[in-house]
Each structure stands twice: as C-alpha cells, then as structure tokens.
C-alpha cells in the first residue's frame, strides 16, 4: 500500500535551483507539497552525510539540486558535488537504503517548469518504494 503523503528533503543551491523553485512557485505551477527545501550556498556544500542524516531522521526521500555543470556560481562547486553524490548514490543499496529515494539533479534559475517536473516525478518515484 503506497503512502499518500511523503516527506522529501531538498538541498538546493542558492543561485540556481532555489531560484528555479521560487520561479515555479510564483508562476503557480502545480507541484506536490512533499518537498521541504533547505537552501545552501552551493551543491559543493552538500556533505553526503547530510543526505544520510536526513534518511536517518526519517526523510522518505532526499533531493539534491544545483546549477548545471559548467554554470556554478563558484565555478567548480558542482563538479566536486557530482563526484561525491554519484559515489553516495551507488553506495545506498549496500547501506540498506533504496537508491530510488535519492536523486541529484541540475535545475537552473530559469527552469521553473523543469523544477515542477522534477518534484512531481521524484515524489511519485518515492511513493512507489516507500
């Protein structure tokens, strides 16, 4: 029996994804209320432990989103993040966490519609496995 309400923690970079999410909000795009956003300066700030701790504290899903590679406000933060998050994602099955509950993605400040899609899709995906 899939859960109807899920809690998703989103770690969003200040410069792209947070602005993109803001845009989706001001444009009144339809998106589930499942996501709790945490604003960070950059995805380079995302310690993989933030994700693991969120899971431990009871999050159903964790979404990390930042600027597209090449567009980082700090030039290279998301390049480092991409490597760490990929290792983390592949480690999750061994840790006993379904990798479908985690996603990292790139959404720019102008992609409000894409943001709504990402949240919708990811919420559905999390509901399937919870």
């Amino acid at each position: 029996m899939p859960k109807t309400e899920v809690k998703i923690i989103g770690f969003l970079c200040n410069w792209c994804s947070y602005a993109g999410a803001d845009m989706a909000g001001t444009a009144r795009m339809k998106q589930p209320a499942s996501l709790r956003a945490v604003r960070l300066p950059c995805t380079g700030r995302v310690n993989p432990l933030l994700v693991l701790k969120a899971f431990r504290e009871g999050a159903d899903g964790v979404l990390v989103s930042g600027c597209h590679p090449g567009d980082c406000h700090y030039n290279e933060g998301n390049y480092y993040a991409r490597r760490r998050l990929e290792v983390l994602e592949r480690m999750l099955p061994a840790l006993g966490i379904d990798p479908a509950r985690f996603r990292y993605t790139w959404v720019s400040a102008s992609e409000g519609a894409k943001w709504a899609d990402v949240v919708n899709e990811f919420t559905q995906q999390v509901k399937q496995v919870i």
Binding site: P69, G70, E76, Y79, Y80, R82, R83, V87
Partner: peptide, 11 residues
C-alpha cells in the same frame, strides 16, 4: 578522486 574533478569525463 574526490579532491578533484574531470570536466570531460565526469557525468
């Protein structure tokens, strides 16, 4: 590997 990156190969 986590102290560096490779724009061309990563991703």
């Amino acid at each position: 590997p986590l102290l560096t990156y490779d724009i061309n190969r990563d991703g």
